[in-house]
């Protein structure tokens, strides 16, 4: 691999990884506040992309209003999921919650397929398609949008969590729901907020990624899995580590494909991230068991 090629794979890895990072942020926020792993997290990303395509291409609504509507709609779905499925099943076991969120996931997926079809779709680029050249590597404007969006979302989330009352309440609730309740923080409101934030972040990711990598009704599972890998690196605790985790997974995947030898080809791209997941989980398994016991 020459330096140019390396750079090319690196950039595409960072781009792809940025999307994983946004999925990972969603997992992290919901898990921190509610101790629920939302197996439907990938569907938020799918919805963001599919809805923005529907609004722009079928309804002819301009780009920015379309994006806002797509994100808003997904946020509402996030709230509905919490209110109807998660809150009603409050005392359910971990296995029950896994099955419930899987149910939510395939419900959304089936619904989207039914109404928006099975085809992969590509919404228009935000700002044209004239590639820029950086040190001999080509980079498309949409990739810059993806990376930029991830940076902005991460900064806003960080400011929200550290500078606002609401953000601090969320953090308090994540540390101890009971202690937070004693100072008047309603854990249900916090959980609802977490689901809405996760839906917003996921759908933003889905909307910015769709013009570059296409989207369809069934992208949710794989994106969810890779977001989970990314978030598990930081043990679903720190948003920043989740973002770094996402970008790392993206880069590893991209470079592995770049090696183009033996199992390191694009046909096995998805398997690479899964193997990474298993390795991470097994390395951390001792600590994970302790943490679950502490909860």
């Amino acid at each position: 691999m020459s330096v140019d090629q390396f750079l090319q794979y690196l950039i595409s890895g960072i781009t792809q990884g940025s999307i994983y990072a946004l999925v990972a942020l969603g997992f992290t926020i919901i898990y921190a506040v509610t101790r629920v792993i939302n197996f439907a997290q990938g569907e938020f990303v799918m919805l963001g992309g599919m809805l923005s395509f529907l609004l722009i291409s079928s309804f002819g609504i301009p780009l920015i209003p379309s994006l806002i509507l797509a994100v808003l709609f997904t946020a509402i779905i996030g709230a509905i999921i919490y209110l109807l499925a998660i809150r009603t099943a409050k005392k359910a076991s971990v296995v029950s919650l896994i099955i419930i969120t899987i149910g939510v996931s395939i419900f959304i997926r089936g619904f989207t397929r039914e109404f928006l079809g099975v085809d992969s779709v590509r919404p228009p680029f935000f700002t044209g398609d004239e590639s820029l050249t950086i040190f001999g590597a080509l980079i498309r404007p949409q990739a810059l949008w993806i990376i930029g969006t991830t940076i902005v979302v991460t900064i806003i989330l960080h400011l929200f969590l550290s500078r606002t009352m609401m953000g601090n309440a969320l953090k308090a609730s994540a540390i101890s729901t009971r202690a937070a309740a004693m100072v008047g923080i309603d854990s249900r409101v916090m959980a609802l907020t977490a689901f809405v934030i996760a839906a917003v972040i996921g759908s933003i990711g889905g909307a910015v990624m769709a013009p570059l990598v296409l989207t369809s009704y069934n992208v949710g599972v794989m994106l969810g899995l890779k977001g989970f890998v990314s978030a598990s690196i930081g043990g679903f605790k720190s948003p920043i580590i989740s973002v770094i985790g996402g970008i790392t997974i993206g880069v590893i995947e991209s470079l592995a494909v770049g090696i183009n030898w033996g199992p390191f080809t694009s046909s096995y791209k998805d398997a690479i991230a899964i193997v990474a997941l298993l390795i991470i989980l097994l390395i951390r398994s001792g600590r994970l068991a302790l943490e679950e016991r502490a909860d």
Binding site: A85, I100, V104, I106, F107, G110
Partner: peptide, 13 residues
């Protein structure tokens, strides 16, 4: 798939 999603949610809840 939609029906299965509903079944999973409703039965488990």
């Amino acid at each position: 798939t939609i029906v299965y999603g509903l079944i999973l949610m409703l039965v488990m809840i």
